[in-house]
Amino acid sequence: MQYLEFKISCKEPYREIMVAELAEIGFDSFLETDEGIDAYIQEDQLVRASYQEIIDRYQESASLKVREGKMAKVNWNEEWEKHYDPITVGDRVYVRASFHQARPEFKYEILINPKMSFGTGHHATTYLMISHQLNLDHQGKRVLDIGAGTGILAIMAQKLGAKEIEAFDIDEWCVENGDENFDLNGMSHVRMGKGTVREVNPKGEFDIVLANINKNVLLDEMEVYSALVKKGGHLLLSGFYVHDIADILKKANAYGMELVDEKSKDNWAALVMKKP
C-alpha cells in the first residue's frame, strides 16, 4: 500500500481547517508539525482536482507551501509516538496514548492509540463534544456514536456511566482502531460497526446520540438522527463551522429538535439538541 505524503506549511489558525478539508476528500492520516501538518492518502484514493481546489482556496489566506512525496510503508505507531502529545479537557479529562505516563489527578483518563484514524481529541470538534458530554448525565443511559473514528466519544460515554453503547464508522481502519481503543479502555464488550447510519440501521431509541462528522452528512442524515433520539433525549452535533450553525439548527428544528447548548473553539462549533 503506497501513500502520498504532503508536507503542508501554513498559518497556525488554518491547521485544523486543512485537516478537516483534506479528510473530506480521503486523506486518512495527519501529523502536526512545527510548520503545519503532514497529510497522507493512499495513492489510488487521491482525486487530484479536489485536492488542488482546496489548496487553491487557502493558498493566499493560509500562506500555504506544499512538498509532495511518496511513502511505500509507514510505521504509524512510530510516527504517532514522535508527534502525538496528550491533551486535557478542562481539569477532568486526560487523553493519552499508551506510551505516555498516567495522570491520576484527572477524574477521567482515556487511552487512544490513534494510528491513522481521525478523532484523537486534538481537533476542536472532538474537544467540544467531550466538553458537552461532561455536562450530560450518562449514568445508565443508552448511547449511540455515529462516525465514531477512534471511538473516543464512545469511550467518554463509558467513563461517564453509560449502560449500553453502540458505535460505528464508514472506514474499515476506524473499525479496527476503534476496537483496539475499546480494549485499551476496558470496553471489550463494545465492538465498532461499519457503515453509515442508514446501513447499520441501529434499533430502538437512544438517550444520547453523538454525531461528529461534517455539515453535509449531518444535514442529509438529520431525520434519521432525530428518530433515534428518545423523548427527553439529547443529540450532540459537531464537525461544522460557526457560520454553519444556522443551517444545522434549521434542519434539526424541522425534525422537532430544540437547541439547549452550544460551544465553539477555533471557529468550529458543537451543539446540544434535545427532543422535548
Rank of each mutant, 00 (worst) to 15 (best):
R57K: 10
G119D: 00
L128G: 10
S29Q: 03
V47I: 14
P86F: 04
A124Y: 03
G36N: 05
P104W: 05
G119R: 10
E21N: 07
V74G: 09
V47H: 14
P13L: 11
Q42F: 14
N77G: 15
E109Q: 10
V66C: 03
T126H: 13
L128K: 13
E79M: 07
N75H: 00
V95P: 14
K65T: 09
S117V: 09
I41R: 02
V89H: 13
V93L: 08
E24F: 13
N113P: 05
I55K: 04
D85K: 15
K65N: 09
A39G: 01
Y51W: 01
G26W: 02
I112C: 02
T125D: 11
S29R: 11
E81H: 11
E109C: 00
V19Y: 02
E5G: 15
H100D: 09
F27I: 05
V89D: 13
G90L: 10
E35Y: 06
K65D: 04
V47Y: 10
N75W: 09
P13F: 12
H123A: 03
G90W: 03
G121F: 00
V66H: 01
A97H: 04
G26P: 02
W76P: 02
K7D: 15
G90S: 09
F6R: 12
L64A: 10
D91M: 01
M18S: 09
D56M: 00
D34V: 02
K82C: 01
P13K: 07
N77P: 07
F118Y: 04
N113C: 02
S63I: 04
E12S: 15
M18W: 07
V93Q: 14
G69Q: 08
Q42E: 11
H122V: 04
Q45L: 11
L128E: 03
E78T: 09
I8P: 08
K107E: 14
W80P: 00
S50V: 11
P86Y: 03
P13R: 03
S29V: 03
S9L: 15
E43H: 10
L31I: 00
I41C: 02
V74W: 06
C10V: 09
D44P: 07
D85E: 13
K65E: 07
A124T: 04
R57D: 07
G26Q: 00
S29L: 12
H100V: 05
Y14G: 14
S9P: 11
E16Q: 10
Y14R: 06
I55H: 00
